[in-house]
């Protein structure tokens, strides 16, 4: 599916995470997502951006506006070139953390979106793709 609009932002500092959250919010308001949809997507984005910072040593997010058969979608692709995740199944378990957090970043953000995909290779990095649709 070809995005109707696409932009990439760097995620290197916690200020970048805040700016990205504001950007996601602005896009979703423009795309006429409801408040609960916005809140869920911005929260998921915040979790994944923090992961990219904390575990990946920084990364980037690509934001894409999608249109498909009358519905609108926002796709976010988070990428980092960090150490990668050896055991994805374990990393997706509620409460599992190697960073001293609550262990809800991956598993929790998965529950907040309509589509969730993760790719990771040890020594190469991690890429997480999420989509939220209007309907």
């Amino acid at each position: 599916m070809n995005p109707t609009r696409s932009e990439t932002f760097q995620l290197q500092t916690s200020d970048d995470v805040i700016r990205m959250r504001q950007m996601v919010r602005v896009w979703m308001v423009e795309m006429k997502f409801g408040l609960v949809d916005q809140t869920k997507m911005v929260t998921a984005a915040s979790e994944l951006a923090r992961n990219a910072l904390a575990y990946g040593g920084g990364g980037s997010v690509c934001m894409e506006a999608l249109a498909d058969d009358g519905r609108r979608g926002l796709r976010l692709v988070f990428e980092d070139q960090g150490p990668g995740i050896a055991d994805l199944e374990l990393a997706l378990t509620d409460g599992y953390t190697t960073g001293g957090g609550l262990g809800l970043g991956l598993s929790g953000s998965k529950r907040l979106v309509n589509e969730f995909a993760i790719w990771s290779a040890v020594g190469e990095g991690t890429r997480v793709t999420i989509v939220r649709w209007t309907i």
């Binding site: 809140t39 509620d94 809800l104 529950r111 907040l112």
Partner: peptide
């Protein structure tokens, strides 16, 4: 806490 925030944190698992 805003209602949308309450909905979201429960789904997040917090």
């Amino acid at each position: 806490m805003q209602p949308a925030v309450a909905i979201t944190i429960v789904e997040l698992g917090m």
